[in-house]
Amino acid sequence: MSGGSPDEVNLSFMISMVKSIKPRDSIEAMLVAQMVSVHVMAMRCAHHLANAEDLAQHDSAARALGRLARTFPAQIEALNRYRSHGEPAITVQNVSVGDGGNAIVGNVTQHASVIVSDKNPTSAARNAPKAAGSRRRGESADAKREAQA
């Protein structure tokens, strides 16, 4: 590297990376060129960090490397979003549904910790999960509600 411009080896690397990502239009080409430049600069900062001679050089290279390292995945995400026209990715898997079975086609959201409050104490006690120890049948509904709280 001389005078801040890439040498022939770095330039060849950068061009080969742009070609391997295969930009589909000029917007993608510009984004991919930025991505490759950010990667090259991150590697340069990593080299400076490894060869820092004092604390100021170390801190400067570490800060720059951190920023560049956060930028690159954001650029990948931007490219993926642009390529998919802002639509979420779809994962297709093989699913077997046997006779009499049910299948759901579409988006499914599951909430792991949904707590449903029931005003009727008897149905709340009946639907509540059992505690690790056994309970006596004679406990009042109030005691059961306190145990659930």
Rank of each mutant, 00 (worst) to 15 (best):
N10C: 11
V97A: 15
V40Q: 02
S16F: 04
S20L: 10
R135I: 10
A56S: 11
A128N: 02
A62M: 11
R81Y: 13
E77K: 03
D7I: 00
V114C: 06
P88W: 06
L79G: 01
P121R: 01
R136Y: 07
N51V: 00
S20W: 02
N102K: 14
R145E: 12
A128W: 07
H58A: 13
H39E: 08
D118F: 13
A143R: 05
E87W: 06
A147P: 11
V38H: 08
K19F: 14
N10R: 06
A149T: 03
P88N: 09
N102P: 03
N102W: 09
M41C: 00
T71M: 15
T109N: 11
G133I: 12
C45A: 07
E146T: 05
I76P: 00
P6D: 07
V32L: 03
V40E: 01
K119H: 12
M30D: 08
S37E: 04
V40D: 02
T122F: 08
E53V: 15
D118I: 13
S12L: 14
S5C: 10
S123T: 13
R126N: 03
C45T: 05
S2K: 05
A112E: 05
I27S: 02
G106F: 00
S123W: 04
K144R: 15
A149K: 15
D25L: 11
G138P: 03
E87G: 01
E77G: 11
R126S: 07
T109R: 12
K130I: 09
A125I: 10
S12C: 07
I104C: 02
Q34T: 12
P6I: 02
V36W: 07
A50E: 00
M41Y: 02
N94M: 10
H58F: 15
I15R: 12
E8S: 11
V105G: 00
H58K: 15
A103G: 08
M1K: 02
G138Q: 10
V97I: 15
